[in-house]
Design a protein around this nucleic acid. Structure first.
Lengths: 114, 114
DNA sequence: CGGACTGTATGATGGCCATCGAACATTGGG
DNA sequence: CCCAATGTTCGATGGCCATCATACAGTCCG
């Protein structure tokens, strides 16, 4: 292939990891962060594919937020789809629960002290 | 009180936290460590009160091991009782499972990749 | 008593990770 | 075509945590 087609204008699709390919330690580490727990809970409170990253109300800047979503994708917790300039999100409830039964439910339960 | 009674010779009993008083983030952080996962699994593989700290086969020194047990106590995962120079351990299965249903089972399941 | 064993405390060290600011890329709209 | 909005990437920074070596304390036994 001689030269690249001058970049089609496509943005690289986000890299996903299926929960089945996620190690227990990876999942626990991903959930052991207050910002990410908040992201997951906010995500669970709205229908799938309705929230773009900027819609989440967490006390960190855009860069950190982007990093957290990368971690959540890598742990099989979140799926992302590009739509226009936005990146819509979906919580992978069934798939993650099949791999780590009960873990997501625990995270979504609000009756905790932390 | 003028001077200390020259130390009675008692060792301070280990400080415990009941799982009900443990925050979700504390529990997840405690479990998000490979050495502590290994300790918990080894502990689960033997009857209660049969393993002293030095019996665990983890690739860290005594100081680090002692630190890990402190973390596990603080997360409501382990109970300790002094017997002679040894400190015997017990996994708080029922209590922890009542507070965080399924989390301990997940940790003990060996079918993970990490 | 004295020594072996067990565990804790302390200080130092190194590494990992969350965060930020700034620069950049993509998209869509005026 | 320019601009605003959205996200990512990069380098730097700071803090937290796991680890170690060392020193210390308690327990038991000979």
């Amino acid at each position: 292939m001689p030269e690249q087609p001058e970049a089609t204008g496509h943005r690289p699709a986000p890299v996903h990891t299926h929960p089945d390919d996620v190690a227990l330690l990876t999942a626990l580490s991903a959930l052991a962060d207050p910002v990410r727990i908040q992201l997951i809970r906010e995500l669970a409170s709205q229908p799938d594919w309705t929230l773009s990253c900027s819609n989440f109300d967490v006390p960190v800047g855009r860069a950190a937020k982007s990093h957290h979503f990368t971690v959540l994708r890598g742990a099989g917790l979140v799926e992302q789809r590009d739509q226009g300039p936005k990146r819509l999100n979906r919580l992978r409830r069934e798939e993650f629960d099949a791999r780590f039964p009960g873990l997501l439910d625990l995270t979504l339960r609000a009756d905790d002290l932390g």
